[in-house]
Design a protein around this nucleic acid. Structure first.
Length: 989
RNA sequence: GCCGCGGUGGCGGAAUUGGCAGACGCACUGGACUCAAAAUCCAGCGAGCGCAAGCUCAUGAGGGUUCGACUCCCUCCCGCGGCACCA
């Protein structure tokens, strides 16, 4: 028997496939195409990670399966090699990034080839190849021409020690990753890509694609669409501000001179709370603040310029992390003297600036409604600003005919035990009964709610020694049914909290219907929430005990003509009315920010723009692309805050393409994401020198049918590349609106200690070692086997051995002559065998095919194991069965399958060109059924019956079972449940 | 805090979507082979009671729906991931 020499076998077939170009994708085949894509790796100095292998092996299995199933498959690979890691690697090892990339790509290529992945190597791309990044620059120019690439002064992360701008990726916990200095914000002119213009389509078109739900929701949340209204608050200067009245020329003139606008626009999703706005807050970066500071103090009297200036400066120094992660204590300062007018009420409101309002969202200004917003509430409490409730919650379900009443709900807490007094009205019915607090109507003539509540407490519980603690800030309108009165009510319930001071009780004084209907119950605090059965009572309890602000919807109050409307209707009406008077409009706001595209680093694509003293920004003419990254000796970041390219005269100095006068090149480079945005398009036509890809080839190959990559790219690469593709689609340059029809993500592989694999922990598994010891087939199959594909899982050395043992058994099985039996069988002409083996292989075909389509690789591998176990039990395996098993295995263990196929079974052509087998249900169907017999839902016996046995016969057989008989002793059968072909269940009493 | 995902033997995980809980693999135990070990092969392997047939308990906790719940509903606890003053 031949030994399994994985090294020899794997090397042999890898060479064979490479020489024959077995897996090259043909452009324009008459077969159906299938484009399987894995995120191309970043060729780091550490080499391939076992995490890469998981993704690549999985899609390799799919790609190989699809080829065998008759598809023309494109399964390409390339390298994403620009960016910081390489630059840092180069600096650390004192070699040029170009050299480092070439070296790393070579190493990665060797490792990938040793895994026997069926890539079409002729289509390999490298984002740092000028022939490639020419088109990355070209795409940038298209964005520029469309007005989507613009230069803006934007606050960026800034390292004051290195004097350089930083990418977000370089900021770790608020510190510069290289020097540890705290990062600040600095205004710099940056290239910005207007991805926000596509926010809505990026959101809507998620409906067109098959992505995992969590990927979709993560993108939806990231885009963060909120529908709301923009409301215009005109700025007024009140008379008491000093010298001049609001119409005063002097005051106005000063404001206008300082650039002050006529009004402040706010964004809100709750226009229904406009009557509850008691002040305005603008972000410290808001232009109103700047104009306020520039205005002339002596004309304005009470202006507190100094204080405002100090606050703004302090805030701007903080970076985002400090500003948000710092204690949540609200800070802010009033822009004294400045007032705005509520456009609907005419009420004058003060204006504050506070860092809890951020410039980047909405309009950078809000109307504060402290009664119905937690942040505004906290701010108003701290600075003693008025709080005005304008929404009352509504609970319960309205009935057609209901009586209105004012009511109280009293929560009584024992001062010692902290238990809460509840009334137990028996089991909860549809809208009455259950556990409630003490409640009662306010009767005519009663005005003091505390007295009303004390009266009700005494009447219903007899307790008189209760002291008032507090009242809920808003009443709850509760629709309910009174069983006692047999009537529907809507009660405006005021919540009051009491403490019991003494246990003495007087006689109860109940309404006629109340006698004996309820019991008193002292409920521990922790259980109250779970026990209270009425939603209105539950809400009151929350308002009373947690001090929560009511931020939900409800019915409008204290809102003039809008009072009584629901929140939803109120929002519509208020917005409409504002629109009519030109004081507002319906609008939409997104959390998504524009994409900062400039990096002050050497190792990236130069941005193809020239600055001319006469013509300003001039794009590099397309015929002059690529703008080559110059070869330099020094590529370390400078300490001037400019890209290292700025110091290279031969690069910087250039003639203006329009007037030929001396001009300067842009010296910033593009971020890492630029090259990876569109690489999957290039695979369709990787060598094209005239276009980024030919339209015909794109029409054939795109979109990607299956794209696998990491979860960590969901809101970066995945979103960016969707955006770029949509942009190209709008330019009529690519054929579809979405680049990836189906997206899947693999879980990361942790080290066996459960931590992340990391050189510093010394727990890294190198794929080379596993390939060396057990072979690529074992490594690939192991990684598919360990866990569901999308789940994170720790590495287990022993698990590798398990898969290796399995492959050894497969090897030995085919080496023995067990697999070459039965030439023909009378029942199955054509050399196919009958019975168990045939059934097993048909089941396997079905299982493997559906698992490949569903990406359930772990259960597919288990099925291979199960089937080989079965084969070993059986005496004879027909050759046809053995061959089909091997064909199914080919996408998973391609080397071993090929070796056995050609060397042991003597076939002349590669197994990977063999057609994928089809299963036939008729071989799978069992001729006897296993019927589970249950008594009261518990399995008591299992019987085997012929498939065609009718129900009554099955039931009779079930009854005849001795084990069932034992259960039936002295009981009667109430009901018999039969589930076709599956079980009989006797319900007995 | 909000959103999403998850919790099943000693471990990684199966379970046709409401119908035999624990497939497959690892670890472990016993046996065969061996002078011995490794490798390999055979058998066992959720817990408790029992000589056994078998019975009882068991899918994070508690409740509910159902003839029947890992699966559906409610409440809670824990873990992971994302977002985080987004008005």
């Amino acid at each position: 028997m031949k030994k399994y020499d994985h090294k020899k076998i794997e090397r042999k077939w890898q060479k064979f496939w490479e020489q024959k170009k077995s897996f090259a994708a043909k452009d324009f085949d008459n077969k159906k195409k299938y484009y399987a894509l894995v995120e191309f790796p970043y060729p780091s100095g550490d080499g391939l990670h076992v995490g890469h292998v998981r993704s690549y092996a999985a899609l390799d299995a799919v790609a190989r399966y699809k080829r065998m199933d008759g598809y023309n498959v494109l399964y390409p690979i390339g390298f994403d090699a620009f960016g910081l890691p390489t630059e840092n690697f180069a600096i650390k090892h004192k070699i040029h990034p170009r050299v480092a990339v070439d070296k790393n790509i070579k190493n990665f290529t060797r490792q990938l080839k040793a895994l026997g992945l069926s890539y079409d190597w002729d289509r390999m791309v490298d984002t740092t190849d000028p022939k490639y990044y020419k088109w990355t620059q070209w795409i940038f120019l298209q964005l520029y021409k469309a007005g989507l690439a613009v230069r803006q002064e934007i606050p960026i992360n800034w390292c004051p020690s290195c004097k350089t701008g930083l990418a977000n990726e370089e900021v770790i916990n608020g510190k510069h990753e290289r020097c540890g200095t705290e990062v600040t914000k600095k205004l710099l002119k940056q290239w910005v890509i207007k991805i926000t213009k596509y926010a809505d389509r990026l959101l809507l078109d998620l409906a067109l694609v098959d992505y995992p739900e969590r990927v979709k929701t993560q993108q939806i949340n990231w885009i963060g669409k909120s529908e709301g209204a923009e409301i215009v608050f005109p700025i007024v200067i009140p008379a008491r501000a000093g010298i001049q009245s609001s119409g005063s020329r002097t005051a106005r003139a000063s404001l206008v001179a300082s650039g002050m606008t006529e009004n402040i626009q706010v964004f809100t999703t709750r226009a229904d709370t406009l009557f509850g706005a008691t002040y305005l807050v603008v972000a410290p970066e808001h232009p109103v603040v700047a104009s306020y500071l520039q205005s002339q103090p002596h004309t304005h009297g009470v202006w507190n310029l100094h204080e405002v200036k100090e606050y703004v400066e302090k805030t701007l120094k903080k970076n985002d992390i400090l500003r948000t992660a710092e204690d949540k204590e609200k800070t802010g300062v009033e822009l004294k003297g400045l007032r705005v007018k509520n456009p609907l009420t005419g009420e004058a409101l003060p204006v504050w600036t506070a860092d809890y309002v951020i410039m980047g969202y909405g309009t950078g200004a809000i109307m504060a409604v402290p009664a119905h917003d937690e942040r505004d509430y906290a701010f108003a409490k701290k600075f003693k600003l008025p709080i005005k409730p304008v929404i009352e919650p509504v609970t319960g379900i309205p009935a057609e005919k209901e009586e209105k009443k004012e009511a109280i709900v009293a929560v009584v807490r024992d001062s010692k035990t902290k238990n809460v007094l509840m009334l137990d009205w028996g089991p909860r019915q549809a809208n009455w009964g259950g556990m409630l607090f003490i409640g009662g109507g306010v009767e005519a003539g009663e005005s003091d709610l505390v007295k009303v509540a004390q009266r009700e407490i005494a009447e219903e519980t007899g307790y008189t020694q209760v002291s008032f603690i507090g009242q809920a800030n808003i009443p709850v309108n509760n629709h309910f049914y009174s069983n006692v009165k047999n009537r529907h009510y809507v009660a405006r319930m005021h919540g009051l909290l009491f403490e019991l001071k003494g246990g003495s009780q007087t006689g109860l004084k109940l309404d006629s219907g109340e006698h004996g209907k309820f019991k008193l119950a002292w409920v521990p605090e922790a259980k109250v929430v779970a026990m209270v059965s009425d939603p209105g009572h539950a809400l009151i309890y929350r308002l009373l005990t947690s001090g929560d602000v009511y931020t939900g919807e409800g019915t409008m109050v204290n809102s003039g003509k809008y009072s009584g409307l629901t929140s939803e209707e109120g929002r519509r009406r208020v917005t409409q009315d504002l629109e009519k008077q030109g004081a507002g409009k319906q609008t939409v706001s997104y959390k998504l920010r524009d994409w900062i595209f400039s990096r002050q680093h050497y190792w990236g694509e130069p941005i193809p723009i020239i600055y001319c003293p006469d013509h300003g920004e001039v794009p590099v003419p397309e015929k002059n692309l690529p703008v080559l990254l110059p070869k330099v000796k020094k590529y370390e970041p400078t300490d001037t805050g400019e890209s290292p390219l700025a110091g290279i005269k031969a690069f910087v100095n250039v003639k203006c393409p329009i007037c030929k006068k001396p001009a300067r090149r842009e010296t910033d480079t593009m971020p890492n994401w630029a090259g990876s945005n569109w690489y999957f398009i290039r695979y369709a036509d990787p060598k094209n020198a005239k276009e980024f890809a030919s339209r015909r080839k794109m029409d054939y190959w795109l979109p990607v049918d299956l794209y696998n990559g990491g979860m960590e790219h969901t809101t970066l690469h995945l979103l960016y590349s969707r955006f770029i593709y949509k942009f190209l689609y709008d330019q009529k340059l690519v054929p579809n609106p979405e680049p990836y029809a189906r997206r899947r993500s693999h879980g990361i592989i942790l080290a066996s200690d459960g931590r992340k694999m990391s050189k510093s922990f010394g727990n890294v598994i190198n794929p080379d070692d596993i390939v060396g010891e057990y072979g690529a087939d074992t490594l690939r199959m192991y990684e598919l086997f360990i866990a569901p594909f999308d789940q994170m899982v720790p590495w287990a050395d022993r698990g590798v051995v398990g898969v290796y043992r399995f492959l050894m058994r497969v090897w030995n099985f085919y080496q023995s002559n067990q697999a070459k039996i039965i030439a023909s069988n009378p029942l199955f002409p054509g050399g196919r065998g009958s019975g168990e083996a045939e059934k097993a292989v048909h089941k396997l075909i079905k299982k493997i095919t559906s698992d490949l389509l569903d990406m359930k690789f772990n259960t597919a591998v288990a099925a291979f194991m199960e089937t080989i176990n079965k084969f070993e039990e059986l005496e004879n395996i027909p050759q046809g069965v053995a061959e089909r098993y091997l064909i199914l295995l080919a996408p998973f263990a391609p080397h071993m399958a090929e070796e056995i196929w050609q060397e042991v079974l003597g076939h002349k052509k590669s197994i990977h060109t063999k057609e994928w087998p089809k299963h036939n249900e008729k071989y799978i169907v069992e001729d006897t059924l296993k019927i589970v017999i249950q008594v009261n839902g518990r399995t008591r016996d299992i019987i085997m019956v012929p498939v065609d046995l009718p129900q009554n016969k099955i039931e009779n057989q079930a009854l005849a079972s001795l084990k069932v008989e034992a259960q039936l002793q002295g009981k009667t059968i109430v009901k018999t449940i039969y589930v076709k072909g599956r079980l009989v269940n006797f319900v007995i009493k």
